[in-house]
């Protein structure tokens, strides 16, 4: 247990180091001079002196290793620098955007659950019947449809033609419907299939038959036996899907003008706001590693064989 945790923690640090080094290098390699572009955006006449002053202020005159060291020391204290564009601390900007993105991804996961669980269960209980075919078709479409296109179609249909839901910005429940559905749909389709396969496999296990022979009710068998066994592949896949979710959030946020982290980073990219991009990349990497740590831990909760070192390890 401790070893696994330690290993994951080490991975977290290693990944963050790798990411920080990579983003820092890329930032330095980046074409164009941020100092100049900064000054240009201020629309003032700039002099050599101004430029040198700003350069010094940003620490760009120091040797690169020292710059990295100082930057890293800052990161350690959660100081990710200041946005070139607004001058606000990157951490503050991200902190204000994070809940908005969390709301979107949370909603998408909810949409996913609302589709996946009933559809996957129905398909597993009626293999070869219409819910199964529906699930199969949806899985294929879900894995093939570009998210941004689905979003556009939804906007066109539900927002422009039917005028049911708003298509722009953040607001109440109605603002969440289309973005969350857009982000959650592909996941739902794929996971419904995964759940169906897992359930079918676990329902064919001998222990299910034995439980039936003991007179345990079908409801208990489904919820406490079959679902539990089918959860393993689902949870494993979730660790891999988190990247999709975060990437998809960027697309969906742009599409629906949702003022979250994704929108922030898109603005930062087009504005060459390197500290913000850097902060975003570091944060995302950390989230992915953390989620995988949680997946590992829940794996052990789901299958005690892993906890006791029997059977296959995570």
């Amino acid at each position: 247990m401790v070893i696994i945790l330690g290993k994951r923690l080490f991975q977290l640090i290693f990944v963050l180091f790798l990411l920080s080094a990579a983003t820092f290098t890329m930032m330095k390699l980046a074409p164009g001079d941020p100092v100049r572009s900064l000054l240009r955006t201020d629309e003032f006449l700039t002099t050599q002196a101004d430029e040198a002053k700003l350069r010094k202020e940003l620490g760009f005159d120091l040797p690169i290793v020292v710059q990295y060291g100082e930057w890293m020391a800052g990161v350690m204290q959660l100081d990710l620098g200041k946005s070139y564009l607004t001058g606000k601390p990157v951490l503050d900007v991200m902190a204000s955007r994070l809940p908005i993105t969390a709301q979107l991804t949370g909603g998408a996961l909810l949409v996913m659950l609302l589709i996946t669980v009933p559809l996957g269960t129905a398909a597993a209980l009626m293999p070869g019947r219409w819910p199964d075919h529906l699930g199969r078709a949806l899985a294929l479409i879900g894995a093939s449809v570009p998210g941004f296109w689905l979003g556009l179609l939804l906007i066109y249909g539900f927002s422009y033609k039917l005028q049911l839901f708003p298509s722009m910005g953040k607001g109440g429940f109605f603002h969440m419907v289309l973005p969350c559905f857009t982000l959650g749909f592909s996941l739902a389709a794929v996971y419904a299939r995964l759940l169906r396969n897992g359930l079918l496999e676990s329902l064919s296990q001998h222990y299910i038959r034995a439980a039936r022979a003991r007179g345990v009710s079908e409801r208990v068998i489904l919820t406490r036996y079959a679902f539990r066994a089918a959860l393993l592949p689902v949870v494993t896949m979730f660790g891999m899907s988190i990247g999709y979710l975060l990437g998809g959030a960027v697309v969906v946020e742009t599409l629906f003008s949702w003022p979250g982290l994704g929108n922030m980073v898109m603005d930062a990219i087009f504005g060459r706001d390197y500290p913000v991009i850097q902060g975003y990349v570091l944060f995302t990497g950390a989230v992915v590693v953390m989620i995988n740590l949680i997946v590992d831990l829940s794996y052990r909760a789901i299958d005690p064989r892993i906890r006791f070192g029997k059977g296959e390890s995570a």
Binding site: Q205, H206, Y207, R209, A210, A211, Y225, D303, R305
Partner: peptide
């Protein structure tokens, strides 16, 4: 009526 099955590992779900 109760049943005892052949497969000893299969009579109980491994994760409970």
């Amino acid at each position: 009526m109760a049943c005892i099955f052949q497969n000893d590992q299969g009579s109980f779900a491994p994760f409970r």
